[in-house]
Amino acid sequence: MIDVINLNKSFGSLSVLKDINIKIEKGEVVVVIGPSGSGKSTFLRCLNCMEDPTSGQIIFNGVDIANPKVNINIHRQKMGMVFQHFNLFNNKTVLQNIMLAPVKLKIMNKQEAKENAMKLLERIGLQDKADVYPSSLSGGQKQRVAIVRSLAMNPDVILFDEPTSALDPEMVGEVLEVMKELADGGMTMVVVTHEMGFAREVASRVIFMDEGRIVEENNPKDFFNNPQNPRLKDFLSKVL
């Protein structure tokens, strides 16, 4: 589904991603872990060109979206993103947040979008919050709304950029629960996270990044129980 070929990204003279190659298949849950500064967030943000790759290709559904001539907006409709700081639209109610893109992009009419949004809110148990503004939600509720906002576009894949890092510890669970449900439903997901439990339990593949490179990738069982790379061994010994 996503085929990353020789991806490089530098900010000025600072090289953040070095020659990344990875294939992500439909239905896979790929979890990316690594120390801070390893480039994992930049890698994720390059996947939907939130950061423009310096060189390399990102083939998504057969199109190289890293090509600046491609209309990225069309492809982002099929590639949702969930942010660390939620990034809900502050001037819109919860319902409007979810309805906005499908209506503006003429994928649904208002009535359909509203019904769809209410259905999604029901799924995360927040239908009673439909008409409030994001400022009155808790962090966990915001992130769940952010997840269904990206779901409203019916994406092929959702990118998660440290979705639980800005949450109070007691709210992490409810967000991970929604993500787990998505994974069980067959959604393709790429998740940058520090939640090792989630990686172990939900991931179909775990990737370890260090200094802008993918240094190890494996199924979660072997990844955690039998790490090969010394840097990964060191990292796991600190976080587990």
Partner: peptide, 14 residues
């Protein structure tokens, strides 16, 4: 906040 722009662009809005 720059996140508002990123939030909008991430769902495919121009």
């Amino acid at each position: 906040d720059i996140g508002q722009m990123e939030g909008g662009r991430s769902v495919g809005l121009s």
